[in-house]
Structure formats: C-alpha cells, structure tokens
Design a protein around this nucleic acid. Sequence first.
DNA 1: CAATTACAATAGTAATACTATCATAAACGG
DNA 2: CCGTTTATGATAGTATTACTATTGTAATTG
Lengths: 224, 224
Amino acid sequence: MTIISFRLNENLFLKDPQNSELGQNIIRSSISLIDEIGFEHFTFKKLADKIESTEASVYRYFENKHRLLVYLIDWYWTWMDYKMDFAMQNLLTPEDRLRAGLKVIIEEKKPDPNFAFVDEQALQRIVMSEFDKTYLTKQVDLDNKEGLFIPYKTVCNKLACEIKKVNPAYQHPHTLISTIMLSANHQVFYAKHLPSLTDINGEKQVTYQKLYEFCEAIIFNSIK
Amino acid sequence: MTIISFRLNENLFLKDPQNSELGQNIIRSSISLIDEIGFEHFTFKKLADKIESTEASVYRYFENKHRLLVYLIDWYWTWMDYKMDFAMQNLLTPEDRLRAGLKVIIEEKKPDPNFAFVDEQALQRIVMSEFDKTYLTKQVDLDNKEGLFIPYKTVCNKLACEIKKVNPAYQHPHTLISTIMLSANHQVFYAKHLPSLTDINGEKQVTYQKLYEFCEAIIFNSIK
DNA sequence: CAATTACAATAGTAATACTATCATAAACGG
DNA sequence: CCGTTTATGATAGTATTACTATTGTAATTG
C-alpha cells in the first residue's frame, strides 16, 4: 500500500492521467489494448470504445497516440530506474552493482502492487515490441529536446557508470550498455518469433536466465 | 548495363517492379521519399504524385506500403549477402572471413553501379531507421512463414557459421551475431540523434571505423 | 488482326486522426 | 448557498489514409 507514483515529464500529456479515474482507465486500457492488437492498429477510437468514453475525452489527456506510447514507455523505464536503485542498494563492488542492475532489466516482470493501474507484464511486452518505434522517427530530435527519452537514458547511464567504475580505462561503456539493452529487448522476441536469430529457447524463465548469462558474459569479457 | 539483379521472394509483390519502368520508378522514388519523410508519413498517394502516376498503379505492384518496405529491406540484405560473398572469397581462416563479413555490414555504403535504380546510401539510412519495424508487428509469424525475413536471416547465419568455425564450443553464435547486427544498425542513429547512448562520435567515416572496432572486439572477446 | 497487358483516370468507401462546440454534472471557493 | 470552474459526454465535422472497383486506351504480343 505504498503511496508512490512517478512524476513523468509534463510534455508527455495535456492532463496528468494519474490524477483522475478516466486517466487511470486510459493508462490501464491502453496497455491491454496495445498489448493485444499492437501499436499500429491501436486507435483512440478503439480505446474510447473499450473504456466506454469518447475519442474527444482521450484527446484531452494525450495529444496523439505516439505521446501516449512514449508515456507508457517512459513509465516503464522510470520503474526500471526505481527498481535498479533498490536492487543496487548496499552492494559495495561495482561488479555486484552492475550485475544487480542488469538482472533487474533482464528478468520476467512481476505485478508490482505499488501501481494498481499498470499491468507490468503486458507493459514489458509492449516495451519489447514498440520501444524502438518511439525514437526511430523523424521527430526524434524534437522529442529528445523535450526530454522524452530521459528515463531510458538514465537507466543506461546508471549501468554505464558502474562499468566505468569496474574498468575506468574501458572506452565504450555507453556503447556497450546500449548494445546490451537493445539485445535484452529483442532476444526474447526472437526466441518467440524468429528463433533462427538466437540460440536462446525454452520456457520463459529459462529464456531470461540464459539471456542474462549471455549479456553478463559479453559485458565482463569486454571490460576485463 | 545491368547484368545482375536479385530474385526476391515473390510474396513481396503482386508484380515484379524490376521488370518495368514504372516498377523501377516506384523503387527509386519510394527510397528517396521514405528517406526524406520517414515510413510513418510515407503514403502511396504521395509516392504516386512524386512519380506522376496514380495510387491505383502503385497498388498493382505492392499490396500495401508495409510490403513495399519489406521489399526494400530484403533487397538491402540480399545485397549485403552478395557483397559478403565477395568480401569473404579467398580468405582462408574463419577469423579473416568473419572480419571481412562484418566489415561489409559496418561501413558506409557507396553507390553500386550494378543497380542503377537504387540509391544505396539512402537505403542504408532507411534500414537503420525502419528495419526493426518490418518484424516488430503482430503479423510477424505470418510474414515469417512467407519467407519475408530470409535475406536477413541468411546474412546472420553466414556470420554465425564463421563464429562456430572459430570456436565450435561457443554456445551463442546466433545470439551474438544478432546482437551485433542490431547494434550496428542502431549506434549510427544514436551517434546522430541520441549521443548520450553511445561513445561513438565524429565524422561518418570515423563513426563506422569506431563502430567496427567496437563490434569486432565484442565478438572476439566473447568467443576466444 | 485479335487479344492481352500496362497504365492512367476517375470514383467511391471505411477508417483514421484529429478539432470544435455545446450541455451537464460534480467540485470548490467565497 | 450560489456562482464558477473543471471534467466529461455527446455530437458533428474535416482532411487524410488505405484501400477497391471500373473504364478507356495505347502499346505489345501471338
């Protein structure tokens, strides 16, 4: 029953969806709808029908569906950042901290009782299939200027800093981490849909375990 | 003077665009238009206006814009495959072959006189920003069944085989290669638009050189 | 010369991505 | 308690997108 909520970038929304029931409904239902039909087929009309509201009402919260997607994704990375802080707490060596942070990223997410209106597992699936679409656009520079990618950059930077501490001479901590983050997001998708692109397979739990080991090996083989 | 052309998967098109002037025009102009405005804003109407034809005529070649994008991307990976075969020719050790293949992937593309109606540099930019969108969809399994991702998988597999030859005991050749391929596509984008995610910067030539060295190091540190 | 093909021209439809206006009920402030 | 803001619903309307269908005609082929 912790009463925390994330304060996200105000450019993301017209009205904060966390402060009203309709807003929370929009978040909850957009997660399940995007998870179900994919972002391409997702429309505010379909969402409005699902929550028995109107398109116009949804538009009062989000300028367009792209901003809504970025909102969800930013929420996810802010959540990861928060979980990483917990996981890395009290660990003394940068190696341990790095491993703990990495583990947070590469594990199957469980529902977090702190956030009642977010289905974290569905959101993780959305991040895997849709995250890249938030920045692979022509407006990336404008969106970036508005700070829309800060949560992801924060997570990456936190891990890159630990790498730097493990080996201050290593020249590519950011490149290495963003490479690993990309892979962490894609390999689970490959395992499911394009298995010839990966050697990872088996049950979900096993998938994440193997993926974690793969990523850990890459990192430590590179920086030692 | 073209004496070669790639025979692409027939599921990609309704009528082969390589066999007519309008078809070639569609390819040429869709590359420049997608490069210019991005795939999201690209429509058959805009393309038709650009080539002074009609929407209906474009639809005779491609079922929809997604298939057209996959066509372009498949052409690119088929081209990469072809170039890799050349580059790896006559090299005897798997290490050398791996390096040569990787170099083909990670270098700034030059216009190839073999293919008059393709702007290879624009196409490379399209691959960097749009490739992931071809498979991060709800129809991925259907598209995969139709063989739409074969060219990419072929390229990945070719490199993974060399890894296996370098070190037959290495357990993750496919995972490693698809990780590197992802990174190769994204890091150049990061360098330009999200520089805090990478340590790579500087002039284009330098960017590719640094990126190549980074990827080579990851690979050989992992498999040795 | 007949028949196919390639393509332009035109029309039309359902869905998408919005914008605008108005009514009303709840909440809130003095 | 009354007036005002706020939140939402209801409704309408627009330009664009993503197609499908039909027809006419010039060029190509058999």
